[in-house]
Design a protein around this nucleic acid. Sequence first.
DNA 1: GATGAATGAGCCTTCATTCAT
DNA 2: CATGAATGAAGGCTCATTCAT
Lengths: 217, 217, 217, 217
Amino acid sequence: MEGVRAMTGQLRADAKRNRDQILAAARELLVNQGVGVPMEEIARHAGVGVGTLYRRFPDRVALLRALSVHTVEHMTELARSALRTEPDAWSALSHFVRECVALRLGALRSIVDPQLHTALHQSDEVRSARKELLRIVEQMIITAQADGSMRTDVGVVDVAMLVSLHLKRPFDVPGTMPEELDARLTQLMLDGLRPASASPLPGKPIALADVDWHGDR
Amino acid sequence: MEGVRAMTGQLRADAKRNRDQILAAARELLVNQGVGVPMEEIARHAGVGVGTLYRRFPDRVALLRALSVHTVEHMTELARSALRTEPDAWSALSHFVRECVALRLGALRSIVDPQLHTALHQSDEVRSARKELLRIVEQMIITAQADGSMRTDVGVVDVAMLVSLHLKRPFDVPGTMPEELDARLTQLMLDGLRPASASPLPGKPIALADVDWHGDR
Amino acid sequence: MEGVRAMTGQLRADAKRNRDQILAAARELLVNQGVGVPMEEIARHAGVGVGTLYRRFPDRVALLRALSVHTVEHMTELARSALRTEPDAWSALSHFVRECVALRLGALRSIVDPQLHTALHQSDEVRSARKELLRIVEQMIITAQADGSMRTDVGVVDVAMLVSLHLKRPFDVPGTMPEELDARLTQLMLDGLRPASASPLPGKPIALADVDWHGDR
Amino acid sequence: MEGVRAMTGQLRADAKRNRDQILAAARELLVNQGVGVPMEEIARHAGVGVGTLYRRFPDRVALLRALSVHTVEHMTELARSALRTEPDAWSALSHFVRECVALRLGALRSIVDPQLHTALHQSDEVRSARKELLRIVEQMIITAQADGSMRTDVGVVDVAMLVSLHLKRPFDVPGTMPEELDARLTQLMLDGLRPASASPLPGKPIALADVDWHGDR
DNA sequence: GATGAATGAGCCTTCATTCAT
DNA sequence: CATGAATGAAGGCTCATTCAT
C-alpha cells in the first residue's frame, strides 16, 4: 500500500493538503512580491512550518519547478477546453491566450535571474509538460493558418515566446493603470498574428521541431 | 567655483569618469545577471571600491534610479534621431522601437520586486525623463495615425506598455533560440499596431494625459 | 508477565530485532560517517521509522550510551575468550588488543564534543560495564607483569587510555595507506609495554583504584 | 603597493590583527569544544563580527585549513629547533614529540567527519606544509636509526601516524585524570620505537616516498 | 506499536551599508 | 577622496524531537 502510494505520487491526506496549500501560497506571493519571497513567508502563508515546506520541496528551485509544472498543466487544460468550446481554431487560440493573461498564469515569467531560470528548466517534468502544451497550441496554429485566419509565417515557438511576454504580472503602482490595459495589450498582440497585418519577418517560422529547448512555459 | 560646479551638476573629470564606469558596469551586470548583483561586484567591475560607489550613489535604489534616467535619456535621443532620419512617423516609431530592443535597453524591466519597482519610480527625475520621452513618442503616434499608417484606437501609454514588454532581456538557455527571435517578435508587435489589423479593443486609447504615473520607462 | 518481561529486560522478539538493527546501523554509520549522522538516516538504515528509533532510545545520547555499553560488553567477551584461549597473560592481552583494533571497536572514540562525551559517561550502566572490562584487563596485566613479560611501571588505566587512542577509526583518504598500517601501529604500541623497552615514566602507575572516572570505554 | 601587499600576503595592520585573533580564537575553541563550534562563537571570541570572519576565511573549511597550516608550521619550527638544541637525533625526535603533545598541537586531530577531513587535505598549502615537516622528521629518524638509537623497521609515515594518535586532546571529565597521564602515554609510545623492544611488524617501513598523501599532521 | 509528517530552533552564509585608514 | 575592512540583519537549510494517523 505504501509502495503504491509512493509510485502514484499519493500522499497522506494531510500531507497532500499541505502540499497544495504551499503551492497556492507560493503562487500568490510570487505573483505579488516577485521570486524573492522568503521561504519562511511562503510557509507562514501556507500555515505550515519551514520544515514542512522543505520536506515537500527540497529547495527553492524544486518549489518553483513544481509550481511551473502545475501552471503549465493548468494552461494545457485551458487549451484543451478552448478547443472543445470555441467554434474555430483562431477563436480557441485567442480565447486561450486571454484566459491565461486574465488568470495571471505567468507568475514565473518574473524569473529574471539567469541561474535560477536555467535551473528551473533543467527538469524533465517541466520540459515534458511544456512540450505537451506546445503540441496542442501547435495544432491550433496549424489549423488556424489552414483556414486563413492566421498569418502563416509564424510557428508555435514564435507564438509561445510572444505570449509569454504578456504573462508577466506588471508591477505598476496599483491603481494608476486602467483595468482594461492587459486586455488591450493582449488584443494588440493577437491582431499582430492575423494575416491582414502580415509584413515580412526576418528568419523563418520556428516550430516545435526547430528548437531543443522548447519555448518558455 | 565649487558652488557653480555643484549647481550645474558638473563633476571633476575623474569623478565623472567614475560615475560613468559605475553606471556602465551596473548596466552590463544587470543585463547579464539580473537585479540581484551585489553592489561589491558592480564596484569591482567598474574598477572602483565600494566606498566610491556609495559616495556617488547613496544606496542601491539611487543607483538604479540613475541608471533608469540614463536609459530613458538614451531612448529619448534615439527617438529624436529617428524622427530626423526617417521619412515618416511610422518608420520613425518602428525604427526607434527596433533599436531599443536591439540595444537591450530594458535592463530594468528585470525589476520584479514591487517594492523596488515602486521606489524606483518615486523619483521626479525618473518621472520627468520618462514624460519627456513619452511626449516625443506621442507625437510620432499622432502623426502616424493622422497619415493613416497606424491604428487610431491606441494611445502612447498603450504603446509604451506594449513596447516595454519586449525590452526585457530574455534569459533563455543560450544558443537554443534563433538570433532573429527578438526581431521577429518585435515585428509581430509592430504589425499589431497597423490599421489593417485593427479589431475592437476594450476601453479607450490611453494617452499621456490619462494617467498619473506615466507608463513604464 | 509483562511485568517480569520489563524487569528482566526482555522484549518481544520483533522489538528486540528492531533494537539490534538500530544499534548495528548506528554503529556502522558512526564508523563510516562520524558522529554527525542524522537520526533519520540511522533509522532508515535500520529499516525502521524515526518514531520507532525514538521509542527504543529516548534521545541521541541514549542511543550512543546503549551503543557504548554494547561495545564494551563485546570487548569484555573478547577479553574473557582471549584469557581462555591464549597460553599466557601477555598473549591474551595483545591478542585482545589486536582484535579490538581490527574490529574497529572504537567508533565512539570519534566523539569529540565534550558535552556529548561527558553526557555519555554520566551513566551508571556505561560506567559499570567499563569497570567490569577493566577488572579483567587488570588481571591480565598483573599476571603478565608477574611473569616478567610486561613492564611494571604501568597500570590498567595507563594501558586503557593508551589502547583507546588506537581505537579511533582513522579517516584517511581511502586507499592511500597500506592495509597493515593499523596492525603496525598497534604492534609498536604493544612493544612499548614490554620490559625491555622500559624507560622511566613520570608519575606512578595508574590502577583502577586510582581514578574516580575509570579510563575511557 | 597594494599589489605587493596582495602578493606577499600582507594585510592592513588591523586586518592582520583580526586574522590572528580569529585563528587564535578558533584554535582555542576547537581544542575545548570540538570542530562543531559555531562560526559565530568563534567570531565573538575573537572580538569581531561574523562578516569579518567570513571575509577572511570564505567558509569553515578554509578556516580549518588555515589553522592546519599554521599548526604544521609551528611544528616544523619546533622540529628544527629541537635538531639544533638536542645532542642527538633521538633526543631531538623525542623532545619534539613531547613538546607537540604538551602544547596540544593536535586540535585538528579531532576531525572525525570524513567529508571534512578529506576537504581539509585537498589543499596544496596543507599538503606542502606537511611534506616539509615530514622531511625534517624523516631526517631525524634516519639519523637515529643509523646511530642505533631507534628501531629500523619503521618509516616516517609510521611514526607520523603514531604520533598523531597522541595529539588529539583527550576530552576527559576534567580533573579525573592525573596531570602526567599525557606524558606517560607519550613515553610509552616512544619506548615502542626503541630497538630493544622491536618485535616483528607486518608489512614494510612506510617512508615519505611510499605514500601519495603523506601521513596526517 | 509503527510510521513518517510537522515543527522550529539553530547554524551557515551573504550582502547592503558604514566607517577607519 | 578612495579604499576596502567591519558589521549585523536576514534568509537558506538541516535535523532533533514531537505527535497525528
